[in-house]
């Protein structure tokens, strides 16, 4: 079952593609992370789906809602939302709700609810001009969901927030997932890892990986060995790198990360040599590589 299908989506700016051949089927009640380094085309993608930008080619189709304005089904929060600073938070929400098709009474009622949920009800009668960044972000989320959209899109919703604000927003998104599909962009993998069910990885406008989080974790699961020596990390790194089954070593702060084709054999070799040459080994650890490796690999290699 899909709620939204995007196919062959592309956007060209002055002969360069900001987004190219993007295709994805969105399932209801999922949280999808759109991830990629800066300039990967995340914002362009969201703006095209939101209807703020006309795609150069491709289709965006809301299943079962073919004849209506798709903006009624979408809630959108830009990266740096700008409000009418002369309005109060409450006024802006009521206005947004009315633009979203609610009656004034319904919009007032829903605004009051959302001000509570997002935790800004004490500031509801203050001018938005006096709001802090975190409060604006919450107001931004409230205006995006006021008309109960089927798809909520957020552009970098947590990257400008402090750790507490970030936590709160991520929790809120997890709750919202029960009511709608959530699509958010981020360049921080751990945010995606934490709450999303699916992931779309973009690089220079192209989708280089996508799918369910758990499938991707399985696919990119690698084991690595972390070594720590008393001294001379770089010296021992070279020694480890010379071993036949080791494919790659990495000096990371004061540890040596080892990736091997066959982790079992590599382990034997390292331990054997450590005993033979009396290496001043402090720590030896077998670890599951996180998605970070996939992210780095996908972004660097492709």
């Amino acid at each position: 079952m899909t709620i939204l299908s995007v196919s062959n989506l592309a956007k060209q700016f002055n002969n360069t593609y900001a987004v190219k051949d993007l295709a994805y089927q969105f399932t209801p009640h999922q949280c999808i992370a759109l991830i990629g380094p800066n300039g990967a085309g995340k914002t362009t993608t969201l703006q095209m789906i939101a209807g703020l930008l006309q795609p150069t080619s491709g289709e965006i189709i809301f299943d079962k809602h073919k004849s209506i304005d798709r903006r009624t089904l979408i809630g959108y929060l830009p990266q740096q939302p700008v409000f009418y600073s002369w309005m109060t938070g409450s006024e802006f929400l009521v206005y947004s709700g009315q633009l979203g098709g609610l009656t004034k009474t319904a919009s007032r009622k829903r605004s009051a609810e959302l001000l509570d949920i997002t935790g800004i009800s004490e500031a509801k009668n203050k001018r938005i001009g006096n709001y802090s960044g975190g409060m604006k972000q919450r107001l931004g989320i409230a205006q995006a969901i006021i008309h109960q959209p089927k798809l909520l899109m957020l552009d970098e919703p947590v990257s400008s927030l402090d750790p507490i604000g970030r936590r709160e927003v991520l929790t809120l998104l997890e709750q919202l997932k029960t009511e709608m599909t959530v699509l958010f962009s981020t360049h921080i993998l751990s945010d995606a890892d934490e709450i999303s069910d699916e992931l779309i990885l973009l690089r220079k406008g192209e989708m280089i990986e996508s799918g369910k989080m758990k499938d991707l974790r399985q696919k990119y699961q690698t084991t690595k060995i972390t070594l720590q020596f008393l001294e001379n990390q770089a010296f021992y790194q070279k020694k480890v790198a010379a071993l036949p089954h080791v494919t790659r070593t990495l000096l990371e702060r004061d540890t040596v990360q080892v990736i091997a084709t066959n982790i079992e054999t590599a382990r034997q070799e390292i331990l054997q040599q450590a005993v033979d040459e009396k290496w001043p080994l402090l720590a030896f650890k077998l670890e599951q590589a996180t998605l970070e490796e996939m992210f780095m690999k996908a972004v660097n290699d492709a």
């Binding site: 209807g51 939302p81 700008v82 979203g100």
Partner: peptide
Amino acid sequence: SGVIELVLVKPV
């Protein structure tokens, strides 16, 4: 200023 984005993403 960009405030128009928040208006035009609504079915206006």
